[in-house]
Design a binder for these strands. Structure first.
Lengths: 352, 352
DNA sequence: ATTCATTGCACCATCGATTGTGCAAATATG
DNA sequence: CATATTTGCACAATCGATGGTGCAATGAAT
């Protein structure tokens, strides 16, 4: 690695080379030169020089002066999950198409980390921010307001900023119903055989539980309010819950509503410890579509949240000048077992 | 959204409030005040004021002055894949632990996009850069050198900067061997029943093909050089390849080496179009571990690349002052079917 | 009491761009 | 030819933080 940090060219260098003033150079290179009535020939000269010397603007300097940055942020809970990673992919495409620079950061579902990360983004004068699945969206909101940062919640709603979320109630209804329908007449599922695992006390989990219960009430006998085991959003706690259930009952429930694909990974861990018989006649319904999850050896019905629609709506809200503080619901889709959907990767051209 | 952009406090505001000079305020707030022999009481006063007024440094200004930014970049091919998303997760944890701010961006395996993205990062004075899976690492290198940006390649090697990659040859050998071993004596796989699908003309694909061929040569009769179908890194082209094969031969090969989980998604798409019989006695070996992929209805052996070790090594190289331009090999791990490994998500504390 | 060293801080140039303002030269108008 | 416009650009302040330098006040040493 030869280090010859050939200092980057600045408008001052070009100003000397071209014989015009720095402000002229600046105007030419940032596109405002017509407004400033710069001669076309001057502009061309400067642009040529810029190319020759590989000029690129120092965006920190520009940002400092204009108190904008050209950066658009996406705050995620985690990267390592197909729902959020495909959201990131979609987000990047949107931001790029607007000529800005996408920045994706995760905050691990930790309210403190969320606020700290947002403060950092603000310190870089990020222009707009999408706050996805935040544990404390209103805390983040306070920071954004203090510095006039436009922002939208997505996936989990806040009470102070516009929010775009999935219709988790409807989605849970669809999913619960689909689980029940997988069982034939003679093997019909009973209320105490249909369990919900995963999630915690957030808006999404609550809505899903509400939908789950509603369908149980409508379609089944027995107590619809039981059979709920929130485990938090981690594979391990979910696994433990499955293990405990299995120890207690000697089997898993035949119908499993899993609150998130992250919790589904807990079931995988359980599976790796138990023989196939434990899953012989199981049906799983799971929030957050994962293509591989859809093809497991037992029927897996999934809900695919429409990240694309949510991102699109979020940007639309960001472009309004006085967006209403309300929550927009986006319909998620039911994905039958053994389905391979297209995703954002398909938009990427591949050579060869 | 009440817009009352209470201008953010600056060191000048605090300097007026505290009665000391801006440079004193700056020194106190950035920690260099002892070196500047500022009285402890002055420092306390200023720190209190800073808290009261919610001061946070303008990082663009700081970056402009010091020509550093506190940002560390990770350039990915894509987000939407468990290998790269878990790499992102690991990367963030590393950077955070060093008190810097992680920035993850994807460039879609497009050399132009890669260069453009890196130019943008440079324009923000990113301090260090990890270039993961770049299609044109040397092109990126040229830009980095021109501005003195420390960088390391990861996943795919370049010829001009230090690189940290998986031992794809060994990995492919392990994987190929494991596929062959899945078949019992009486059902033994023949050379023309073991195919490799996916990948393209990059270093990783070449090494994997080399390993694949080597084992075929060592363990099987027949031509070891055939049975290779590079399809690029996209689900769709892989699917097409499977479809064509199926049309031609009336079945899939019994042994399938799939070059990447992205290509594996092509197999999923194929599966959704065909009855189960098409996969009755199939064995798949696939690069890039995906927890759900590991539990499909047929045996799936996976290779897990050690993203954590790669990231760790990369940061170690970044911290050397004259790193050697060489390629470091990291051993990947073979993951038997039906295995649920822990990942970076497990490091995240979850409440409830 | 004078000298010297130390403490504690203020001053100011600087990073690289943006932008309001002003002014000379070129051109148009009468 | 004299005045009014327009064209084309230069000047200089500014964004917020950093860090080298210099200077007064305090305390120590002789």
């Amino acid at each position: 690695m030869e280090h010859q940090p050939k200092k980057k060219a600045t408008i001052y260098d070009l100003s000397v080379l071209s014989g015009s003033s720095p402000s002229t150079v600046s105007a030419v290179l940032n596109g405002t030169w017509r407004k400033r009535r710069i001669k076309e020939s001057t502009a061309n000269l400067i642009r040529d020089l810029a190319q020759q010397h590989q000029y690129t603007a120092n965006l920190q300097a520009r940002g400092l002066r204009s108190s904008r940055s050209g950066l658009v942020g996406l705050l995620l809970p985690v990267h390592d999950n197909r729902y959020f990673s495909s959201m990131a992919q979609t987000f990047e495409a949107h931001v790029r198409s607007r000529g800005q620079c996408p920045i994706v950061v995760s905050a691990c579902r930790d309210p403190q980390e969320e606020r700290h990360t947002v403060e950092t983004l603000i310190a870089y004068s990020v222009d707009e921010l999408i706050v996805a699945g935040a544990t404390d969206p209103d805390g983040v909101h306070a920071l954004c307001v203090a510095s006039g940062l436009r922002h939208v919640n997505i996936d989990l709603p806040g009470t102070l900023a516009p929010s775009v979320i999935s219709d988790n109630y409807q989605g849970a209804r669809m999913l619960t119903e689909a689980i029940i329908c997988r069982f034939s007449q003679d093997m019909q599922l009973k209320a105490d055989e249909l369990y919900l695992f995963g999630g915690r006390d957030d808006h999404a989990s609550r809505e899903r539980i509400r939908g789950f219960r509603a369908i149980k009430r409508e379609r089944m006998q027995g107590d619809a309010d039981k059979c709920i085991e929130p485990t938090g959003y981690s594979p391990n706690t979910a696994q433990t819950a499955f293990e405990r259930f299995y120890e207690r009952e000697g089997k898993l429930p035949r119908g499993l509503f899993i609150n998130s694909s992250i919790n589904f990974e807990g079931l995988l861990r359980f599976m790796s410890q138990h023989p196939d018989e434990a899953f012989a006649d199981i049906v799983v319904g799971c929030y957050d579509y994962d293509p591989f999850g859809s093809f497991l050896p037992f029927p897996v019905i999934m809900i695919r949240q429409d990240a694309d629609a949510m991102i699109t709506k979020a940007f639309q809200i960001l472009s309004e000048n006085r967006p209403a503080v309300r929550t927009y619901l986006i319909q998620p889709h039911l994905v039958p077992p053994r389905t391979a959907l297209k995703g954002p990767l398909d938009a990427i051209k591949d050579i060869e």
